[in-house]
Design a protein around this nucleic acid. Structure first.
Lengths: 261, 261
DNA sequence: GGTTTTGTTCGATATTATCGAACACGATTT
DNA sequence: AAATCGTGTTCGATAATATCGAACAAAACC
């Protein structure tokens, strides 16, 4: 993004690559597997793994000698999340919103081409409890992303569509720049964004942006509902609800200094 | 704590040191401040910071050019937390426990000399939210830690007291090894541990361990209450409650393979 | 507008991470 | 039980590469 001509530190980059190898399908990996995944000799990754392990970013399962992500990540992540007053301000309103519709509600920041969840509350029926905080989804395929984007200054919007890869995630994903801009215009007009299975089949969402004193979006909130419980009539109803809730939170956001994220 | 003769990779260690410089009191730091904190030249940390930033572990506040922890930590932490079936199994019981006493309830793993929170639910009055997941507290000064420790095999307990630094956190913290062992015996007898302002003034906790099929502790749960709402009579009441809840969860923990943490 | 603090650039130096082969350990198989 | 397979670990030589300090540039401050 910037013209900052920085130099990457090789071994640090490789260490971070190791952390990225882990995912939901591969929560535990051995040294050889990790070495294979990042195309480095075993002995090299051994040292990197050891350093990460000593610092708590990896931990070894004594039963199978494999490694998994460590507690230190949770510790540091807690600090990351607490930086955002936003979360504290929004929490009671999200709770009320959740209770009003009894569906999952979300709060997310934009980070580049992704929206990152920083708070999530599920309806009473769904007892998933998976901490999906930190999860990322694309800007262009989510109601969250479209709500955020729609209220940016026009030049930034155009810059986004010019440089963004509109990867189709379902057959409903908007991949055409013109159509996307038209959709954003609709979002502005009606005050909330709609995702009709554009990010995931069987899922519908409505979302609205949180604006600071300047009118600039700093985050977005959404309600996500399985298709079965989300007929067209309810889309408008929940859309209005999320829009009003977002407006209420925005009014509380007299952020004088930072938190613009 | 092993005799594994590993070699630390210097630059990786320094990069991780940078992440550790951030804390609640210093959520944002500039290059010079970071360099001062870890005693390295600015130009060296610049490269490390850049590498961390590119990977999302740090982000720069455009308003003051300072750095703060990045979203990538939350993303990776989500994966860490999801590794523990424990959380999913315990969640409904914790919820019930929370509703039964309307106080904050916690689930924590032991990591070395600390207990690490992996789930936390607050009473309806306290609106604090998930923020404190990942937080660490000492084993010897918390009900969580004492509950966990008390049910370990005796040799491991002795090993712990032999090598642990019983740092006093309040005037109530047990710092004498003999007294500590005596307290653990009480814990075993009554089935739950008590922390009477040993970790923090004004806070009382009761806790009980979660045991796997083997009878080995894998985690602990607790109820933490402000002193004002926790007279001696209620200690016994909530203690029994947390003990019974822990027993219920333990019964569900037929862990055949791992998750021993 | 001048001054101070802060962040960035640059190239020479020597530290230090890398590599591959050989070793040791455990698990699984026959 | 023996043997095999795969895995993780050790080791020293090599060359790559992170480090450093000073000089530069750029904000922030007054």
């Amino acid at each position: 993004m910037a013209n900052k001509q920085g130099k990457l530190i090789g071994s640090v980059q490789r260490a971070l690559d190791i952390l990225d190898v882990f995912n939901a399908r591969n929560p535990e990996l051995g040294t050889t597997e990790i070495a294979g995944a990042i195309h480095l000799p075993k002995s090299t990754v051994a040292g990197l793994i050891y350093t990460l392990e000593v610092n708590g970013y990896l931990e070894q399962n004594p039963e199978n000698r494999k490694y998994r992500l460590g507690y230190k990540l949770a510790e540091r992540a807690g600090l990351f999340l607490n930086q955002y007053d936003l979360r504290r301000v929004a929490a009671p309103h999200l709770l009320a919103l959740r209770d009003a519709c009894n569906e999952s509600v979300n709060l997310a920041l934009r980070r580049g081409s992704d929206m990152v969840y920083i708070e999530r509350m599920h309806g009473t029926n769904t007892l998933g409890f998976r901490s999906e905080i930190g999860k990322r989804e694309r800007v262009h395929s989510t109601a969250l992303g479209k709500a955020y984007l729609a209220f940016l200054p026009q030049p930034e919007i155009l810059d986004f569509v010019a440089h963004h890869d509109f990867e189709p995630l379902t057959q409903n994903t908007i991949t055409d720049a013109e159509l996307f801009l038209a959709d954003l215009a609709c979002v502005r007009e009606r005050g909330y964004a709609i995702d009709d299975q554009e990010n995931e089949l069987g899922g519908r969402c409505v979302a609205a942006p949180l604006l600071n004193f300047d009118g600039r979006p700093v985050a977005a909130i959404s309600i996500s509902v399985p298709l079965q419980r989300m007929p067209d009539t309810r889309v408008a109803e929940l859309g209005e609800l999320v829009r009003r809730t977002a407006a209420k939170i925005s009014r509380r956001l007299g952020l004088p200094h930072e938190n613009v994220g």
